[in-house]
Amino acid sequence: MAEINTNDIVRPENLTYVKSKILTDNVMHYCPGCGHSTAHRVLAEVIEEEDLQSRTVGITPVGCSVLMYNYIDVDFQEAAHGRAPALATAVKRLMPEKFVFTYQGDGDLAAIGTAETIHTCNRGENILILFINNGIYGMTGGQMAPTTLEGMKSSTSPYGREVATMGSPIKMADIVALLPGTCYVTRQSVNTAGGVRKLKRALKKAVQYQNEKRGTCFIEVVSNCPSGWKMTPVESNKWMEENMFPFYPLGDIKVPAE
């Protein structure tokens, strides 16, 4: 067998994977290894493959992902802290032909925006809520979030989260799955290639259900925060597998009847 040179392989006809064109060339401000960047990339791929670029409106939160509109080349609207689902409700009701999604972290969705999240899901607004759960407030310096695990250290729980005084971590996906308005609730991750591919399939399902006007789709992505957790990206992924996944098990929580 003749040896093949790398230069012979690197040709347009052999292309297997390249980042989506909808992801802009701006370098993302996220820390190395952050799950936000991976989630952005997958979302951009889905928007490109489903040909949604011209009719997508994204709602950005307050948190690390506040500058998301610099990285994905679709229309965006910035919401007040925690109010993304309320704004998404308005956008979807005014322009029902648009694909509307919110992208929120745990401080935005599970703390200041709990009311908006729950009532939007309860009304069954026809939107996609993408929830990035890394168990900590990344942007403000690693404070305890509602989703911080029991015993997990953060800058405002330096001896670990104590349930007696700080309460138990909140499972948002399980809560909204109980509401009749949600049609599809799932929990995914982005730490492995398999996880990323599953998230992509989940996002495509959410697009399909929104096109069919089936109700609110809620996708939780269990993610890492290497800087907030004070670990390297590889260590944080391992820590997440060992500690986050037992408490936040991956998989579909609610799927619509066919």
């Binding site: 067998m1 003749a2 093949i4 012979d8 392989i9 690197v10 040709r11 052999n14 292309l15 297997t16 994977y17 390249v18 980042k19 989506s20 992801l23 370098v27 993302m28 996220y30 190395p32 290894g33 952050c34 799950g35 936000h36 960047s37 991976t38 990339r41 982005v190 730490n191 492995t192 290639a193 990323v196 591919r197």
Partner: peptide, 16 residues
């Protein structure tokens, strides 16, 4: 490339 957070990897493949 699928796990790369920053999308910096492009992959090519060929059957030989």
């Amino acid at each position: 490339a699928v796990v790369c957070p920053d999308g910096v990897i492009t992959v090519y493949k060929v059957k030989v």
